[in-house]
Amino acid sequence: MNEEAIRYDATHIQVLEGREAIRKRPGMYVGSTGERGLHHMVFEVVGRAVNEVLAGRARAVGIVLTSDGGVRVSDDGPGIAFETDADAEGPGLEALLTRLQAGAQPGGRHDVAMTTFGGGLCVTNALSSRLTAEVRREGVRLVQEYARGVPLTAPTAAGPVTGSGTTITFLPDAEIFETVECSFDTLARRFRELAYVYGDLDISLSDERSPGGSRSERFRYPGGPRDLVAFLGARAGAPVHPDVLAFATEDPRMEGTVEAALQWYGSRQERVQGFANSLTTPEGGTHTAGLRDGVAGAINAYARERRHLTAVDPDLGADRISEGLTAVVSVKLDHLEFEGATRGRLGGDAVRTCVAEAVREHLGSWLDGHPDQAAAVIGRILQGTRED
């Protein structure tokens, strides 16, 4: 092999940016070219619309799986101007569709990050064979067409319109993805979780692909985590006590808020779900550990105060206390800290301390104020201890 053949210098480096980089390495931006990546495309678009609702600029978000295999995401906000103007809080729609968003970290507590990649609308646009952006704003409807991330036209007026909002319709690119058929159930599961975490959300999902007729579901849970505990508990047997304990509080030490809900059921299985901002944490972390710490602390303190435990009795074990417990803990933080690259486990020592103290305080007050229900909970735990 001669010197020319093995020489490698800066002239051999290929620099890809924007849509070219996304299409060359799609897995880096949506996780995979399988069903997971396909759904991430949907979540990137839905996340922008959901933030419009949480910011108070829109009331609802609608997602439609269209009969031609596309996805249509609409909101009823003021409509994002195609071009950035002086009054805009962020970039215009055309910039969002053609420029990668800086960084892939989830936003702060006031922003919804539906994916852990965070590339934004540009990623969905680049990985779609066709995309149509429609803005209804100030009585005018403007439309712009794209093909694989490249604009085919400038934003074009398409006549007058009543109402306002933004609609993004796209066809996932079959040259990129192994499948271009979204799963209604997978999308519904994520939207349901999001609506439970953010009680102000109103999301609807419709499927027009079935020849037997459309399928639709609406996700709106004003009770937030309280409603999620009731939903999870429906499969956990009869409740030990009728009320779901729920609370929300802010703690500057962790620069965020904690919202939790819990109830004991007849099943011996523990069901605890954790959320960090809008992301699920399937591996748990400091927020779920703090919840368990707080529950154990409150139960043991109450049991000793009411002399269910003597001075020489050991504390009731956390495993025993959590049997039959169904709980949801959601933290919304200004600065998220995850353990590991997959971001499935929340970190941050302050989070564990703050959540534990909040749970212990509120559960302790609830036990004191509801003696009959407290007796049922303690009795359930002590009975299980004796059976062992």
Rank of each mutant, 00 (worst) to 15 (best):
D334A: 11
R72K: 13
T116S: 11
G149Q: 03
G70H: 12
E94C: 07
D173K: 01
E208R: 12
A260S: 15
A236F: 00
V197T: 11
L316S: 06
S214G: 14
V30D: 01
P282A: 07
G56T: 10
A374C: 13
D315K: 05
I6T: 13
D68P: 09
F43S: 06
H110F: 11
G294P: 09
S322C: 15
R304S: 11
L38M: 09
A10V: 14
C182N: 09
R360T: 13
P160K: 12
G348L: 08
S214P: 10
G290K: 10
A195T: 09
Y198R: 06
A5M: 03
R141T: 05
Q144N: 04
T257Y: 06
E387Q: 13
T281F: 12
T66L: 06
W366T: 02
D207F: 04
T66C: 08
E4T: 10
R72D: 01
A133L: 11
S278M: 06
W366P: 01
T186D: 15
T280G: 12
H40S: 15
A341I: 11
L171I: 11
N300K: 07
Y198E: 07
T124Y: 01
Y198K: 01
S322F: 10
G347D: 05
G90W: 00
T132L: 15
T11S: 15
A49Q: 12
E175K: 12
V272G: 09
A318T: 15
E181Y: 05
A296W: 07
Y198T: 03
G103Y: 00
H39G: 09
T385Y: 08
D251V: 14
D243C: 04
F338M: 10
A95M: 06
S128E: 04
A341K: 10
V355W: 08
S32L: 07
Q14F: 01
R99G: 08
H335M: 04
G294Y: 11
I203F: 10
A88C: 07
T11C: 02
T179G: 01
T286E: 03
I22T: 11
E337S: 13
V45C: 09
V240R: 07
E270L: 10
Y302S: 11
E35T: 09
T166W: 06
A147N: 01
L333R: 03
G79A: 11
P225Y: 07
T326C: 15
Y221E: 08
G364K: 09
G56L: 02
G119P: 08
A356S: 15
E255F: 09
A113Y: 00
V312T: 14
D76F: 05
L152K: 14
L279V: 04
F275K: 01
C182T: 10
S210A: 12
G223Q: 06
P160R: 14
E305L: 07
A55Q: 11
F43I: 00
L367S: 08
T326Q: 06
P172K: 03
D85P: 00
V161A: 11
L54Q: 09
S164A: 14
H12F: 12
P222D: 03
F184H: 08
D85N: 14
S330G: 03
M41F: 02
R320M: 14
V351W: 10
A376E: 12
R7P: 00
G34C: 03
G212N: 08
M41T: 13
F117Q: 05
G274C: 04
S204M: 05
E250Q: 05
V377G: 03
A311Q: 07
A113F: 01
A236T: 00
E270V: 10
A158P: 00
G149T: 13
F247W: 09
Q263N: 14
G384R: 15
